[in-house]
Design a protein around this nucleic acid. Sequence first.
DNA 1: CTGTTAGCGCCTTCAG
DNA 2: CTGAAGGCGCTAACAG
Lengths: 337, 337
Amino acid sequence: MKVTLKTIAQEAGLSITTVSRALAGYDDVNEETRRRVIDIARRLGYQPNLAARHLRSKQTRTVGMVIPLTSYFSDPFFMELLSGVGRQAAEYGYDLLLSAQQPGEEELIAYRRMVASSRIDGVIVARVWKDDPRIAFLKEAQHPFVAFGRSNAGDYPYIDVDGLSGMRQLVRHLVERGHRHIALILSPANLVFTAVRYEGYTQGLAEAGIPVRQDYLVEADLSQEGGCAAAHRLLTLPDPPTAIIACNDTMAIGAMEAARERGLRVGRDLAIAGFDDIPLAAHTDPPLTTVRQPIYDIGRRALDMLIRVIRHEPLEEPHVLINPQLIVRASTGGHSP
Amino acid sequence: MKVTLKTIAQEAGLSITTVSRALAGYDDVNEETRRRVIDIARRLGYQPNLAARHLRSKQTRTVGMVIPLTSYFSDPFFMELLSGVGRQAAEYGYDLLLSAQQPGEEELIAYRRMVASSRIDGVIVARVWKDDPRIAFLKEAQHPFVAFGRSNAGDYPYIDVDGLSGMRQLVRHLVERGHRHIALILSPANLVFTAVRYEGYTQGLAEAGIPVRQDYLVEADLSQEGGCAAAHRLLTLPDPPTAIIACNDTMAIGAMEAARERGLRVGRDLAIAGFDDIPLAAHTDPPLTTVRQPIYDIGRRALDMLIRVIRHEPLEEPHVLINPQLIVRASTGGHSP
DNA sequence: CTGTTAGCGCCTTCAG
DNA sequence: CTGAAGGCGCTAACAG
């Protein structure tokens, strides 16, 4: 049988109310009584029924995250973010409710469900879209949330990485190594950071007086296969690039694969760079030049912010922008082309 | 304001009960009425309050997992397991409640809380310990669970990898390459799989007529640093091994680091092998020979089993043992010593 | 076919 | 200092 307040009350010959208050630490309870209650509770292994508590208190001490199913394999990004969020949630005594969903429509429904069904106190939204309906929904519902990523969907608390600066650093680095034929594998256009990183790319080129070439721009889907296919397309151009930047590391790794398949030595015949600095990036052959997003820390900070929002505490900094760091490794090394 | 059954009932001029039944699809409701109710519900964006529903129905459609905090970084194992579990949970329409905890005492408390507080219908226990108190607790509480790993803690549903066979294959492979000085970096002794893998190691050696040497056995904590330190200890022996097996890939990667630091070429001067086949293993330099545990699939199957247990359906196979596969890569390649 | 009643376990007034 | 009463939102008998 489940141990409830009632069980303890009977055992102690007290009312449920008193037991509840004794356990909750109210100071209008006789110390002697409290001791007895606590004793019995421990002896019986009492654990409050959280469903009941939540129903009453409208609080769950749980935060939610929806994860697109496809990302599991193709993309270490979410796992790392999850780690950070989960770690910090534990710090606050919060649990983390995960809902894995097909991206798109399903995903939005999952948010609706999570939020409206009162299972969570707040949500972390990752990888923001243009005109993100999830954010529109959360804002309208006035439900606490923090996003990883800016958007054009109005004002809301977010933490983001300055992808423009990161990408510009990357281009500058390649230019310094003597590259003038720099291609870009874009991420899907509906992701906000794509436009930001693209802007960094064009600014970087502009600084060096290099015009943007349309045939050096290919879009792929963040996956390794996508990156591989995109790189193949670039490398069959009549005037192929000497350097390829991918909008994330996973696609960059795919591009390295493509280069290998064509007999090119990455870092010598062809420079390749990524974005993210996932754990794997340091271990590819050759190691991958990239821009470090401290995703784990971002997860932790996002959760910090979320807790503040949940508690209606003011955010001293509702919009955090983190400057990413260029990590130069061998994939853009070797001699100049 | 929150939309509840009451809201809809008022709007429709019906009782709460009827609305509830209309929405739940009972067949003792006038079709016309049902249509109207559903219509209003949709229009108002009704979402059932799950806390209330759970309180009534004693079901949460949520499964739990407790993750040791330290594992986040040092160990991709949990992330991959999580992916599999989460993926399959989504398939069944279940959510996943995560609790990140300090390993040890805290962790056990987290189980107690999760279970006794009626927040979840079942749990997945990963990486079983000897005399695992978590399993003892779950058995005693008669709470649905499935473990990844056997144990001496009595009978319960589990899925496991045949670590003995895996390790024996690994030893055999090294012996075939001419190695007779094969060391083993052990995982912590309180983990059940450590003993199993050790047994595979000794059997493998016995088959080749090689005696077990105590000085070739070192214990480490599953982390990269631990593996590195352990390898250093082995390599400073007066009669150092020509091959090192680590009980997981992460430690093997640490061992590779140690070898590099001592100027040894992995795969030529020293053979190194791991266990798990984490994604990184294929990308180390040189790529790591290892034993593949299909962790993602194991997560999925574990959840399948758990759902069965939750629904009181019989398990056609309560103890699943998976044969792992030897993956030979360059870290044990090259010429014989 | 629909409504009334009861209660899941907890917390919070409000009286004693 | 303690208890009785009410209600969070939902579902499940049981009557009409």
